[in-house]
Every structure is written in C-alpha cells, then in structure tokens.
Design a protein around this nucleic acid. Structure first.
Lengths: 135, 135
DNA sequence: TATAAATTTGTATTTATTACAATCTAATCC
DNA sequence: GGATTAGATTGTAATAAATACAAATTTATA
C-alpha cells in the first residue's frame, strides 16, 4: 500500500482509502475486471463502497496514467493495472481477456504524423484454447 | 445495388430492401457511423425504418463478413464497410474515426498459437490534426 | 399464387454509464 | 492538534446503448 500511496502523491492526487483499495485490487487481480466485478468483490468486504466511486476513481487513475482501460468487449469497460503497451485477446466464449505477446508489437508510423496519440491498442477477438477444447 | 444483392446471395442471406440500403449506406459513408447516425440518416428518407432492424442487420452482415464493427469509442458501436485488416485513429475531440496506414501492420504471432482468431484490431486514441489546429 | 421460413417493426426491458447534490474526508494553515 | 477548505465519496436519479420479444410483413420456393 505504501507504493500506491507514493504513486498518488506523485500525481498530486489525494490519498483515499478507496483509491488505494482499487489500485490494490487491480494490482492483485490481473484479470481485466469490469467495474461490476470490481464493485462486487470490494463491496463484499466493504459494503459502503459505492459503484460511482469506482467509475470516478477509474477515470481519475486512468487520466493520470496509473491504470488503463479496454473497450474491446463492446459491452463494458475492462480495467488493467498495466499501463505499458501490450496486446490482448478477448474470448467471446468465456468473456475473459488474456495478455498475449507478439513478435511485432504495434508502432505508430509515418501514417500518423500530425496526430497526438494518447493511447494505443491492439487486440484479437475469438476463442481461447480452453474454450476450444470444451467443444 | 446489384453487387450488394449478389453479396447477400453468396452468403445465403435473403435480399431485403433494408439490407441493401444499409450496405449501400455504409459503402457510400466511409465515416464509421454509429447505429444512431445510420438510423437518423436512413429514417429521414425512409420513415418506416426501424432501429432494431439496423441492430439486427449489422449483426447479420458482420457475422457473414460483409461489414465490420469497432468498439473503440467506448460508448457505442461504429460500423465499417471495409472488412480487411486496417488501422484506426479515434479523435476524442471531434468523435471521428480515421483510417490510418502503418508501416508494420499487426500480425498474429506465435504468442497466439492455440487461439482461434475471428477479429484483429489496432487503433490509436488521441486528437486529430484538425482538432489540434483549433487549439 | 399459396406456403413456410425468415425478416422487420415497435415496444418494453435491460445494462452500463453519467449527472448531481448532500455528506464526508484529507491536506493545509494557524 | 483543531479549524478550514478543497476535493472525494456516496446514493439516487437520469441517460443512452443495446437486447428481448411477439406481432405483422416480406421473401423465396413450390
């Protein structure tokens, strides 16, 4: 928790129990959880936690580069503690998102001159190995 | 319209006025429109067009590979007549999506062995040249 | 032209997200 | 340390996108 506190301070953000809790949750749950999942999990220990706080905090933490978000499922935002560029695979069957490694990671090229880039995303959609086996 | 009809036939889909109209709309509006935009535009000429039909048709056409969809704005699905792999830039300021060219297009690598891939997406989020100029 | 299967339509519902005002809390100053 | 204040949290209400569903309509085939 010491580290999260330092991160918040560096960004000029107030230290709050909720922010620390959400950072800790995302750090220890690298499963690209939705707001709903985060909410259910945290609420079970801490019933006063509000879902709005999760939306607010996600937005704040993201705006300051402490976390990132994915919109690849098409139905809800998924959160990621990692902020470095990496690739994802979304399995439509089990609804999970996997980190995947590629030989040639995406790079902005000359085709993007003149654009100010805030985020880069690359991902695949399909069926994961585990779900393929089941069929 | 002849061509769209042929495309539908090849995929074993019934020819309907609505499907032809939506295909034609997307072909002539390469602006990655949302369902809402498509609906408003088509409805103005054709008041009986239903929004549900657009959702249904988008899903059907996509399932048969005649169009593709993007979830990069995080708030609504955007449609694309093009189905070949290409890259996008989403401008948060004007809400437009641009096609962009990269030197190194994304390729599934060995890190994806065992996965069945249906879709590949790469995109950037930020501010487009026109919006940068305004500021 | 009659028929069956598929499609369209409109409405109702669900689900994710945002707006907002009241309450509460963390950081700062004395 | 205690008061102050800006900022954060909470809960509820509202919005917006997408889905479910059943009735009406249309397409393709015989």
């Amino acid at each position: 928790m010491q580290f999260y506190q330092q991160q918040l301070k560096e960004k000029g953000l107030k230290t709050t129990y909720q922010r620390l809790k959400i950072l800790d949750y995302l750090d220890t749950h690298r499963t690209h959880p939705s707001v709903e999942i985060i909410y259910e999990d945290i609420k079970s220990e801490n019933p006063s936690f509000s879902k709005t706080t999760i939306y607010n905090t996600i937005e704040t933490l993201k705006a300051h580069g402490l976390i990132s978000t994915l919109t690849i499922t098409g139905s809800e935002v998924r959160c990621d503690y990692k902020t470095d560029m990496h690739h994802h695979f979304y399995c439509r069957s089990c609804n999970r998102i996997f980190d995947v490694d590629l030989e040639q990671p995406l790079q902005p090229g000359s085709g993007l001159q003149g654009y100010a880039i805030d985020e880069m995303h690359s991902y695949f959609i399909g069926t994961c190995p585990a779900c393929l086996k089941k069929k």
